[in-house]
Design a protein around this nucleic acid. Structure first.
Lengths: 117, 117
DNA sequence: AGGGCTGGTTTCCGATCGGATACCGCCTTA
DNA sequence: TAAGGCGGTATCCGATCGGAAACCAGCCCT
């Protein structure tokens, strides 16, 4: 999941910061713990993950719930607002999948003669 | 159009860089000249505009056409791919409009107690 | 000859982004 | 008592983003 070799920088859409969209996807099937998020989000550092989660929380897309008990347990879950965000996000993802070949071709064509950028 | 006082940083979606989405919108009703883009995109500097346009061109969303003649004339137009991009973009915009109040409320609530970020 | 418009480029700079690394308190288990 | 997992923080750093300002060539008009 979320292979770092995947050329996702090609995707023309973004939701929030670098990891936000992936976090939302990870949470769409239910709450996840901090460490359960780190696994699928390959390569994310604790700092970046915390930062993204704090922002998603501040913006009302995610709630942080700390359970008290013997073992420490913190779970993150989507709010209704965050769940709704998945709609347009899915639309964008689907469009990207449908036009993937065109995106690749266009960029490769546009790349010849534009070394930098 | 595109009032700088508009709190658009609240919008959770992004397409490309800061000006890309606005440029696409400006082009949706037909080609526009460089200087015709600068007007509605209030506050954009020539550098930023050029940069965004070059990227959009490289990625195959926009074409640059230079007309020869007495007066200098350069026009930018959407490609079919760029036109298609407006679909999911519109979906995202509409979602944002529908949930605007929730977005505001959520951020205001989330802001109390989170000074920075 | 000078000034203006068009479509940029160049340089500089501060702000932000995000990775690397080290460290932390708390709790459980061996 | 030490080791290890959990859920982070703190600090540093290089890369990128994007605005400000200056400058430019080519062409027009006066």
């Amino acid at each position: 999941m979320f292979d770092p070799v995947c050329p996702s920088p090609l995707v023309p859409f973004r939701v929030g910061d670098k990891w936000a969209a992936l976090i939302l996807r990870c949470l769409q099937d239910g709450p996840r713990r901090f460490s359960e998020l780190k696994v699928p989000l390959r390569g994310v550092t604790a700092k970046s993950l915390t930062q993204s989660l704090r922002r998603l929380e501040r913006d009302g897309f995610v709630v942080r719930e700390e359970y008290e008990g013997a073992e420490r347990r913190v779970e993150y879950a989507l709010t209704p607002l965050g769940l709704g965000l998945l709609g347009p996000l899915d639309a964008a993802c689907e469009w990207t999948r449908e036009h993937w070949d065109e995106l690749i071709d266009a960029r490769e064509a546009g790349l010849s003669g534009a070394a930098d950028l």
